[in-house]
Design a binder for these strands. Structure first.
Length: 425
RNA sequence: AGAGAGUUGCCGGAGUGGUCGAACGGGCUCGCCUGGAAAGCGAGUAAACCCUAACCGGGUUUCGAGGGUUCGAAUCCCUCACUCUCUGCCA
């Protein structure tokens, strides 16, 4: 959620950036928010005047009662009725204005950072660089779903039988490969200074709201209505919410946490060839990084996190490219996002395997996550997160890029201590 | 899942309708004392919001959350969440 104080200070600048993200009438929307906030202040000022008056009167009634001046006390009581009604009215007005303001703010996405290119869709994303060896095949490379079937390591039909489409079953070496990747990613993250967290896989409404899933992505989460819980779409949600309503001492910063969790996504509306195989699932595994840092350091942190994830792809011997997402392709909450994509020779396209974002204060504003300055001021921190990494697409990339002429899959050196086999098949 | 007890400030813990933002103890910060330290003494020690040029000052709200009764609620009533104990069930 954007901060009202900042909207007030930099209305035009923010409006301009919101427009780049496709918000219609950005200036008008911001001005409406400021008008509502002005109105709120007016009402609050009046409200508090009446409340102060009520407090005064109540106090004096207490004194009169004590002194035994019953009639005087009764008379004073009668006089309060009008003020009381007025307070009720004003309270209703404040709450109306506040919910209107909140509604307007909730609708607004984060404003893209100045360095984010303007654009509407994936086509406008910028390729920052490509790295890694191009895999050359002297045979016809097969897509991962065929390889997985051949080696009987991933079974979509079984998953469909026991649950439904998009819930594959990993078997034998497939299951071991998953477990190996998770351990590998977690060990690397720990070496890089991240504390490992095992969070709950369901969260309450407050948590889903604070990181921006609600109300924006309501329909994308599995919702357990009976208990009011949401299945997490990413570990970002519980891990970032660890710090909801916290004031962090400066010497604890930056907060660096990571976690492995399954992720659950309804993916309502997805269809077509691009959702084949492991490309888009309802349940998948992911190791996620979350950092919370000082505002002035968040863009360095974004770079640091992205480079870190790239080092994982290097270790897995995968050719990748870094994309700087354009204003129109970023998620609701992000101010700047880098995507990392691995080239799949078999599918002849780039697969997104990681997304690293700086949310600036968009999440921390809802989280009320602040730090205390030397002067004892409370300032909102910045939050960032990144996948390191999402398993299905990494598995797909490994299968497709490391397949051999005989159909076997070569396991990259770095992963062998974890799989304890060098090839599949 | 059933029965009971509880949820108060950084921590412990009083407080059952008015003078309670909250006794008392501990912690922490600053000052005094000291060669230095301990002890001791003194002062301070929540958050959000409103008024204001103001980091001065004044005001409002907050004692698990939300609603209600009342002139007035930490204190009474209702709903919910959480914690603990016992019983039940079960990885």
């Amino acid at each position: 959620m954007l901060e009202i104080a900042k909207i007030r200070q930099k209305t035009e600048e923010i409006a301009g950036n919101l427009a780049r993200k496709g918000v219609a009438n950005a200036t008008e929307v911001l001005q409406e928010i400021l008008r509502l906030d002005d109105r709120r202040k007016e009402i609050v000022t009046e409200l508090e005047k009446y409340r102060a008056e009520m407090n005064q009167t109540s106090k004096s009634i207490g004194l009169l009662m004590r002194e035994g001046k019953k009639e005087e006390a009764e008379a004073a009581k009668k006089q309060t009725a009008e003020t009381k009604d007025r307070i009720k009215e004003l309270e209703q007005e404040v709450s109306d204005v506040q919910s209107k303001t909140k509604y307007e703010l909730d609708e607004l996405p984060n404003a893209p950072h100045a360095s984010v290119p303007t654009g509407k869709s994936v086509e406008d994303n910028e390729v920052v660089f490509e790295r890694g060896d191009v895999t050359k095949f002297d045979f016809d490379p097969k897509p991962h779903w065929e390889l997985a079937r051949k080696h009987d390591i991933i079974d979509w039909e079984l998953g469909a039988k026991i649950t439904g489409a998009g819930f594959p079953v990993y078997k034998g070496d497939g299951a071991i490969l998953q477990r190996a990747l998770i351990s590998f990613f977690l060990d690397k993250a720990r070496e890089a200074g991240y504390q490992e967290i095992q969070p709950p896989l369901m969260v309450n409404e407050d948590s889903a709201y604070a990181t921006g899933q609600l109300p924006d992505k309501e329909g994308q989460m599995y919702h357990i209505e009976k208990d009011g819980f949401y299945m997490i779409p990413t570990a970002e949600v519980p891990i970032t919410n660890l710090y909801r309503n916290d004031i962090i001492a400066m010497d604890r910063l930056p907060l660096k946490n990571c976690g492995y969790t399954p992720c659950f996504r309804r993916e309502a509306g997805s269809y077509g060839a691009h959702v084949k195989g492991l490309n888009r699932l309802h349940q998948f595994d992911k190791v996620e990084l979350v950092q919370v840092c000082l505002p002035e350091k968040s863009y360095d942190t974004l770079e640091e996190m992205t480079s870190y994830v790239e080092s994982l792809l290097d270790a897995l011997e995968l050719r990748f490219r870094r994309l700087l997402l354009c204003s129109g392709d970023m998620s609701h909450a992000s101010a700047k996002t880098f995507d990392l994509e691995v080239f799949s020779a078999a599918q002849e396209r780039w697969l997104e395997v990681s997304s690293v974002s700086n949310f600036e204060t968009f999440q921390t504003n809802r989280l009320k996550l602040r730090y205390r300055t030397e002067e004892n001021k409370k300032i909102l921190l910045h939050s960032l997160n990144g996948s390191a990494l999402a398993l299905p697409r990494i598995v797909a990339s490994l299968l497709e890029n490391h397949q051999q002429a005989d159909g076997s899959i070569r396991i990259p050196e770095a992963l062998r201590p974890y799989t304890r086999f060098d090839q599949i098949g």
